[in-house]
Design a protein around this nucleic acid. Structure first.
Length: 264
DNA sequence: ATGCCCCCGGTTCGGGGA
């Protein structure tokens, strides 16, 4: 039995954030780190700096925006890029790695769920809901494997009113609309557990503070970065943490790492 | 009601995002 630390962090531009990322890898020492919004093509990803810290790097990038990555101390046996269900979807928002651990495997997904705003946009909000339906279908398929599976990422979903400083600010927002929260609950109803809420009664808890209007200074945050666990993964969960100290660093991302400790 | 602020690509601003 060994402990594994698995983290998710929306880095908001890996090239702009490489110093913060390397410092965090050294300090926090995750076994697997799921990154979102790398905003880089695969060839432009600063892999050498990260490999020098002992990490294997797998990316699924695109030009300018979106993009996800998996950094891991052990090399994955298998990597899958792109969320199934729409061959025409060009947006790089999903990468899955399969890792060998004691007694079997763990599957880890780094996902960047569409924001969906403005919520009355004829394209953006329907795309978000369609993406969530595809994620649900993927999760249902994977659930049949009865393996430890961690769906980690920036969900752009505020699950409950107590996951926002001021929920009244969010009632017409794509992150908090009833349809968005219902789609998130459908994922939970498949048997996936919100790791942070399973291990922590504290309210509110935030993982994102907007750059604008002094949101960090006012602690006007929301909790939108989640580790969703299959039953086999939640059996292994021991604790979680939100590493909010990195939000106070120079040139921060607007999100902070959310981590889980697992006994494998 | 709107913008606040940020990153990228490429160039001193527009596109895109949140």
């Amino acid at each position: 039995m060994s402990m594994m630390k698995i983290a998710t962090w929306n880095i908001n531009g890996v090239k702009a954030r490489i110093e913060n990322l390397c410092q965090w890898l050294k300090d926090s020492d995750p076994d697997i780190a799921c990154l979102q919004e790398i905003k880089s093509v695969d060839e432009g990803f600063p892999r050498a700096e990260i490999e020098a810290l002992g990490y294997h790097v797998e990316t699924h990038g695109q030009k300018g925006f979106n993009g996800v990555a998996l950094l891991s101390k052990i090399k994955p046996d298998e990597v899958n890029r792109g969320l199934p269900g729409d061959e025409t979807d060009e947006q790089a928002r999903f990468i899955e790695g399969v890792f060998s651990v004691e007694g079997g495997v763990v599957r880890v997904v780094s996902l960047y769920l569409p924001n969906g705003n403005p919520s009355d946009d004829p394209v953006k909000y329907p795309y978000k809901l369609a993406w969530m339906a595809r994620l649900e279908a993927f999760a249902r398929d994977r659930m049949a494997l009865e393996e430890p599976l961690i769906l980690a990422g920036d969900y752009n979903v505020i699950p409950e009113p107590h996951d926002a400083k001021d929920p009244s600010q969010w009632v017409t927002d794509a992150l908090f609309l009833p349809q968005t929260r219902a789609a998130f609950r459908r994922l939970e109803n498949l048997g996936f557990v919100d790791a942070v809420r399973a291990t922590n009664d504290e309210t509110p808890l935030f993982s994102f503070w907007d750059y604008q209007a002094g949101a960090w200074q006012k602690n006007n945050g929301i909790r939108i970065d989640h580790l969703m666990l299959s039953p086999e993964a939640s059996d292994r969960l021991r604790s979680t943490a939100i590493e909010k100290h990195v939000r106070a660093w120079e040139k921060p991302s607007d999100h902070v790492p959310v981590v889980g400790h697992f006994a494998f």
